[in-house]
Amino acid sequence: MIGYLIRRILQMLIVLFFVTVFTLFLVHLFPGGPIRALLGPRATVEQVAYFNKLYGFDQPFYVQYGKWVWQLLHGNLGYSPKLNQTVTGLIAQDLPKTIVLVGLGTLVSLVFGIPLGMYQAVKRYTVSDYVLTGISFLGYATPTFFFALLLVEWFAVDSHIFPPFAPQGSSVGQVLSQPRALVLPVIAYAFLLYALWSRYMRSSVMDNLVQDYVRTARAKGASERRVLWGHIFRNSLTAIVTLLGLSLPTLVAGAIFIEVVFNYPGMGLAFYNAALNVDYQTLLGFTVLATLATIVGNLLADVSYAVLDPRVRYT
């Protein structure tokens, strides 16, 4: 098990290497170079050259890379001139709020998705199954932002039940103190995820219901409820946990869209603004962080799979 972990971590590092090289390369894709992009078309050539030298962009790539990685390892993710803040500071400020949104949204999606998916499997091919399947399809096919827009339109603008914008504030505490403003963003965020989990649980439980070991359980005298919760649930859950770990890119994408629609002061909105302002340091820093989170998520997914499935654990 330890050996397995070590090997996975080594793999992680290899992946991190590729990713950081790629991200740095991205920066150089800005026409005229990153400094030109930052300063804008009106900067003079001398100004650009000056900053190039200052930030080390005139060095060969591998030198830049080395310096940058060195910086990263020291926790220095750069500085955003537009916002007059270190990127790390920006992260420290905005990440917790995004985590609140993502966490709540994922929780809601699981709370509804897993039981409803199981229910669908048990009541397969009946009316309720079809209705719920229809809702899942809507979840897949509706762009997150459109669904968010609709929620705002129906529940905020027209009926004034919930406020149209997310809670504003710079700290988590301030955000959490306006729970009514959190409702719509969380629901909008959760919809797509709900569709994923419920669809998966449905097909997984349906597969399991015809397995031999379920027949054995029935032959022992177990009731359908016991079969479902005592046997099938555990086996299907294993894969959901793994799926969770692998769905980080989706979680990130959702965060960006929801935060933009609701003006939620989290990392997604900050990233979007940074893109519009071509604030490359912020963009890079955020991307590296998100990548790291994804990689760690993959690792956790693998580890949890190994832990939960005894066939992997004991071979």
Partner: peptide, 21 residues
């Protein structure tokens, strides 16, 4: 009756046992 008065054994013991229990 199942498992109590009548017991049953199936053909493939690998798939007939719950792998995670």
């Amino acid at each position: 009756v199942r498992g109590n008065e009548i017991g049953m054994v199936f053909q493939d013991p690998l798939t007939s046992l719950n792998p995670t229990m």
